[in-house]
Design a protein around this nucleic acid. Structure first.
Length: 586
RNA sequence: GCACCCGUAGUGAAAUGGAUAUCACAACGGUCUUCGAAACCGUUAUUCCAGGUUCGAAUCCUGGCAGGUGCACCA
């Protein structure tokens, strides 16, 4: 429809002797101003040497020579805006279209035949997931869904940083403090022979991630004592030398970490096609550095460290290998990027990572280009705004100012279940509570612009009224039960506009959904979806309040039901692009 | 010092360069014997400052001010 009107405008302008170099056609903010609006008359008035309103009238006269059935009327308003009002039939047809497409309504093909490899989440396996991970995971889940809806083949990836000093601290914490009888053991050989004397998370009565979290903190604290720190460093060295006993211990603690993270990630809707484990590629990076050195991409400093040469790329330099010859994050990222690219043959590679990594990301991309791993334009860092805890300032795991994700979800769930207890079947409480808790938290984060800093307020995130996930879910579920009640009448809808029907604002919004999906994809903006869903729900709830939908006496009732079902379909599809599932009842 | 991000009602947020800046929370006042009140209807209140570009600026540019982040051998 949009293209159609644009063509009409372009032809009209050409006929008037104006060469249009671009036409702005948009949905006016006010529905009363029509369905599409253009400012072309304002923009081209000067070129036409006339005033905007006069030009607008000429354009309208020109367009009116053709009969377009979808356009009911064209009006001129304000300083010279031309407003297009679409016909009742157009809206009814769009409702029919939604009902026909169901789950696929809203899909576009703007990224057809493109492969996007997206890295997100990547929590370190020595800690339980906390609020600091939240925005990353939710943004990633949503963007993957949005890109898929726009036709891309999406590969979801995570990097598991499973080696190094932090993991060694966790191993040490487990060794010295997880023994069932509470005694302290530092001899790893003894552990290997008497594994069953150590607690499992179940035996300790803890969730595995929290078990790990506690042991890591214990290990980190122990390292304040130089003697212990030496022992921990020794673990790293022995691990790198593939000492079988150390590897056994390493695998043991990691298995607990993975078990915990897997659960939390699943609760947030995060799925992965590939997990890259650091231990499998961390040594590869140095080869790239050596190649780069011989090609003159890098230079060696007097102290032995190897430095980038990025001045020509407009970036500050960074060390790629330390003076002692050991690797840095960027060293292995070179190898990893190369591996990812070769594996997926991706047209676009995306890193969803916090904004503080911005410079490091640009450096990585630039170096990859210098080494011929890929072009800078194929790589994209997608950052997001900071999140602070309201009233407490920045989150810090060091100061113990940590809020665990599972606790937040559980708290929301408890509150929701209390509310639903009398209303729905007991067997559904758990799963519905989980869905709604997730929706409250996910929507609370995703409705904000991606780069907007958020002050996370726990009580605000657990809210159930207003601009919230549960509000959207409630609207959708309520629509569902109306449709259920009128399932006989809905069959009477014949796809035509009922007599005496006045087009509703709800219809004027429903058909825009695919445009919103397209914009969310182009701008990598989940918030575009979120904002649309709030507006759509408000329109449905107002419609619901004003109209009786199921009414045997009312000849428009079948269409109202069809409209309600179209709303429900659009909401479900929209929510799923935010990673949010809709329950049947709540 | 340099670079990047941000600044919108009391609070949290929205707004592809468009018309009277939108939504929610909070506050105040209404609406359940009738399809689900987690809802609806109404009232009050907002673009950091100064220039500039433009027919038109919360949005773009310049300069301030305030906040955040990063800047080579940490992860």
């Amino acid at each position: 429809m949009k293209e159609k009107i644009e063509t009409l405008l372009r032809d009209a302008l050409t006929n008037l002797g104006i060469t249009p170099d671009g036409i702005v056609l948009e949905h006016p903010a006010e529905l009363a101003h029509g369905d599409y609006s253009t400012s072309a008359a304002l923009a081209y008035a000067k070129a036409a040497q006339t005033n905007p309103r006069a030009l607008a009238e000429k354009i309208v006269a020109e367009i009116s020579k053709n009969v377009v059935p979808e356009i009911e009327s064209i009006t001129i308003a304000g300083p010279g805006f031309i407003n297009f009002h679409l016909s009742k039939k157009f809206f009814t047809d769009s409702v029919v279209d939604i009902l026909a497409h169901k789950e696929s309504y809203g899909k576009t093909n703007q990224f057809q035949n493109q492969v996007w490899a997206i890295e997100y989440a990547s929590p370190n396996p020595n800690k339980a997931m906390h609020l600091g991970h939240l925005r990353n995971v939710l943004t990633g889940v949503s963007l993957c869904a949005i890109l898929e809806a726009n036709g891309a083949k999406v590969i979801r990836e995570m990097v598991d940083n499973n080696r190094g000093i932090a993991i060694a601290k966790l191993m040490w914490g487990y060794l010295v403090s997880a023994k069932k009888d509470g005694t302290r053991v530092t001899d790893i050989a003894y552990w290997a022979e008497h594994e069953s004397e150590w607690n499992t998370p179940e035996e300790a009565g803890m969730r595995p991630d929290r078990f790990v979290d506690e042991l890591y903190v214990k290990g980190a604290t122990e390292c304040e004592n130089p003697e212990n720190e030496t022992a921990v460093r020794d673990l790293v060295v022995r691990w790198e030398n593939k000492d079988a006993t150390v590897w056994k211990l390493w695998e043991k603690v990691l298995s607990y970490a993975y078990a915990g993270q897997k659960k939390t990630l699943a609760r947030l809707g995060a799925k992965f096609d590939f997990v890259w484990h650091e231990h499998e590629h961390y040594e590869e990076g140095k080869k790239f550095v050596e190649t780069g050195l011989s090609q003159g991409v890098f230079k060696k400093l007097e102290d032995g460290a190897i430095l980038s040469d990025l001045e020509s790329m407009g970036l500050t330099d960074t060390v790629v290998v330390k003076k002692d010859g050991t690797a840095l994050y960027i060293t292995q990222d070179l190898a990893l990027t190369d591996m990812k690219k070769k594996k997926h043959n991706a047209s676009k590679m995306i890193w969803i990572i916090g904004p503080e990594q911005s410079l490091a990301m640009q450096q990585l991309f630039a170096i990859c280009e210098q080494l011929g791993i890929g072009k800078r334009a194929e790589f994209l860092h997608v950052p997001y705004g900071y999140m602070s805890i309201k009233g407490e300032g920045k989150m810090s795991s060091r100061t113990g100012n940590v809020i665990y994700l599972d606790d937040v979800i559980d708290e929301a769930k408890e509150k929701i279940i209390a509310l639903m207890r009398d209303r729905i079947d007991a067997s559904m409480l758990e799963s519905t509570g989980e869905m709604l808790a997730h929706s409250a938290i996910a929507f609370g984060i995703l409705k904000a612009g991606r780069m907007t800093d958020i002050a996370f307020d726990l009580s605000d995130a657990l809210r159930l009224e207003g601009d919230t996930g549960p509000y959207l879910e409630y609207s959708t579920v309520r629509a569902g039960s109306v449709v259920e009640k009128g399932k006989k009448e809905i069959a009477d809808f014949d796809g035509t506009v009922p007599d005496g029907w006045q087009t509703t604002d709800l219809e004027k919004y429903l058909y825009r959904f695919p445009e919103i999906v397209s914009r969310a994809g182009a701008e990598l903006a989940p918030s575009a979806i979120a904002t649309y869903l709030i507006e759509l729900s408000a329109l449905f709830n107002a419609f619901y309040g004003k109209e009786q939908i199921v009414n045997a006496e009312d000849s428009t009732s079948p269409y109202k039901l069809a409209l309600t079902e179209a709303f429900r379909t659009t909401m479900k599809n929209g929510l799923s692009l935010l990673g949010i599932e809709t329950p049947e009842k709540m």
